[in-house]
């Protein structure tokens, strides 16, 4: 390979990077939604795979019907809230375990989303014909818009989870029995948190559908794993950089940074010519590694084998 080809190929990597960053920020909003349930409420909510696509479908269909982008996104958010409400009711009122409640909502949303898109599995929306606020056609602008959304959402979350109600949600996530003893209606708090979370996920789905120029029935497949990847990568980076001095605002910022890092890695992997078919497997492996590393590190430092060696030395 000549130098020219290598340089040209590197160049293509760098021209692709801004797009990956924009995608990472949009998925970062999704991860912020997931952060509410996964980190604050300690609830692995699988409904997000469905509500992400719901957000995309609602936004695109409404915009084609002539609604203004802001209203379309607001209604997408509310559709997500309803999805979260469904999961919450399945879990709290009907006593279905957390993971199953999410799976049931997710599977039901598949039909709901198809109905929203009038039976079509893919609904395109052209940036030439509609007033999209975010599109891969104008990447720098897309990055700015996505960052504005992130900033506003982070401020709202910082405020909300500092209020009496938000604190009650955090308490419910850490210690349900203590929360009940302090007069907190933990079922209500779970439903509220799931609703807000899925609302944000749907909002990010609405943005992503505009960015890619279409809503697709499968656009949310594996969303939870990408969201988890963002949260976990962000968490590891945050701990590495700020050790224990982190605060809530930083933690949230690093969730979004985690999303960006994830998409940059994906960009590099694609540049290395990995077939797109293998992307999901690659994502799963990344998440598995990040989840396993802290555990294995502890196991290694704390193993019986090491204990035996230490004991052996002392006896010698």
């Amino acid at each position: 390979m000549s130098l020219d080809v290598i340089l040209g190929s590197l160049g293509s990597l760098f021209t692709a990077m801004p797009g990956n960053i924009a995608q990472g920020i949009i998925w970062g909003i999704m991860a912020l939604g997931l952060f509410i349930t996964y980190k604050l409420l300690d609830f692995a909510d699988l409904s997000v795979d469905g509500s992400f696509a719901t957000g995309g479908a609602v936004t695109v269909v409404l915009m084609i019907a002539g609604y203004n982008t802001g209203i379309a996104l607001l209604l997408a958010f509310l559709a997500g809230v309803l999805a979260g409400l469904a999961t919450g009711i399945l879990h709290t009122l009907l006593g279905i375990p957390a993971i199953l409640s999410g799976i049931l909502t997710q599977i039901a949303l598949f039909s709901v989303n198809l109905n929203i898109m009038d039976g079509k599995s893919n609904t395109p929306i052209s940036v030439d014909k509609y007033n999209l606020i975010i599109s891969l056609r104008h990447v720098p602008q897309a990055i700015i818009v996505a960052l504005v959304f992130v900033a506003v959402i982070m401020c709202l979350m910082y405020w909300y989870f500092g209020t009496e109600m938000g604190s009650a949600i955090r308490a419910t996530g850490t210690n349900p029995s203590m929360s009940k003893a302090q007069g907190i209606n933990i079922s209500l708090m779970k439903v509220v948190a799931l609703s807000i979370s899925n609302g944000l996920v749907a909002l990010s789905g609405g943005l992503f559908a505009q960015y890619q120029g279409f809503a697709d029935i499968n656009m949310g497949r594996g969303a939870i794993v990408i969201g988890l990847a963002a949260i976990i990568i962000g968490d590891v980076l945050c701990k590495a950089i700020f050790s224990k001095k982190s605060n809530f605002m930083l933690t949230m910022a690093f969730v979004v940074i985690g999303g960006i890092v994830y998409y940059i890695v994906i960009g590099i992997v694609l540049w290395l010519k990995m077939p797109t078919n293998n992307l999901k497997m690659f994502t799963a492996i990344i998440v598995a590694i990040f989840l396993a590393v802290p555990y294995l590190k502890d196991k290694f430092n704390n193993s019986f084998m090491k204990a035996a060696k230490r004991g052996g030395k002392e006896n010698a």
């Binding site: 109600m165 604190s167 955090r170 850490t174 029995s177 203590m178 929360s179 302090q182 007069g183």
Partner: peptide, 28 residues
């Protein structure tokens, strides 16, 4: 059982100070 381990000492006390009151959108 009696405290929320992931929350700060003052946050735990503030949660208890609001026992039996409705939890609003005022600062926690």
């Amino acid at each position: 059982t009696g405290t929320a381990a992931n929350m700060q000492i003052d946050e735990n006390l503030a949660l208890a100070a609001r026992r039996g009151k409705s939890r609003t959108l005022r600062w926690g």
